[in-house]
Design a protein around this nucleic acid. Sequence first.
DNA 1: GTTTCTCTACTCGGATAATGCATGTCCGAGTTTTTGAGG
DNA 2: CCTCAAAAACTCGGACATGCATTATCCGAGTAGAGAAAC
Lengths: 158, 158
Amino acid sequence: MNEGVEWAVHSCLNLAWLGERAVPAARLAAFYELPAAYLNKQLQALARADILTSVSGPRGGFRLARPPEKVTLMDVVVAIDGDEPAFRCTEIRQRGGSGGGDADAYRKPCAIDAAMRKAELAWRRELAGQTVADVMTTVEHTNPGVPDKVRRWFDDTR
Amino acid sequence: MNEGVEWAVHSCLNLAWLGERAVPAARLAAFYELPAAYLNKQLQALARADILTSVSGPRGGFRLARPPEKVTLMDVVVAIDGDEPAFRCTEIRQRGGSGGGDADAYRKPCAIDAAMRKAELAWRRELAGQTVADVMTTVEHTNPGVPDKVRRWFDDTR
DNA sequence: GTTTCTCTACTCGGATAATGCATGTCCGAGTTTTTGAGG
DNA sequence: CCTCAAAAACTCGGACATGCATTATCCGAGTAGAGAAAC
């Protein structure tokens, strides 16, 4: 999976803690010492997926497009990694020695593809059940000082 | 995900239908018109994982190391793609502005990593619950002629 | 006819190139703020 | 002091290089089997 997914989710959490104001990509990148231009690329993808809204010019940046309860981890993963399944069936059963005879026997879906899709659906369901707000709650429970720490850092280096 | 996974599972099904005898990689590749040397590489990985046993020399090839009820799709995927998780947490929360203060605050696992791991565990559980024998049964139900067709093709082009 | 030895042909196995995608970087379009002059 | 305009600085946005993993390939080590010769 794309490494940018990790950066994107972390950035979403930070943006949620910072509230309404827009934060530039360079600032978000500096917080984790990440390559700024590349993180910008990922945030652009989140904006295209309507997870963030982007504001140009001075005092611009990115902000959450909707409350964190409405942003699932599935949304973020799809925005960064794309919605294509990890296992892509290329229908090799139709090629070579087995492919000649029954043309309509392949109307039924490939059983291997079905099994893989079933597993991937379970993965997607699990990701769709976890929102950014849920992750925020977990962090606030295990590390209560983090939200204030984030706010203070982004205020001090304004 | 690695495309070789698809080839590997199909080959496992065919080997199961063909019974005990060893089948060369070149023959299995010809059945789907796949690059022979590359499929050989994948089958080697399956052999290293004790899913197949390899036999050298004339009348050699690959055969299933154990009955198909004992081979899960998870085994095959791990053998080809490796057992590393799709989402790899690089602990960026410890870098940059947030990393300075509490060294032991990071004893607790990263919440994002936990959420991703939970989804991936569901995926793995689903794959581990499906065996090669299950997929065979599905195919025999939707396409009853396939097993005989496979056996005939591999016998004719001996 | 049986046994044994040699030779051949076939298969896996790992080492070796080529390609595609993820990673990383850069500069231009657009917009807001600022700032300065003029009224 | 207020208004207005122009310029400047800052931000996103997409186009442009680079590195590495997947894809693909090849040749050598080893082995089973066929075949011929000797008994």
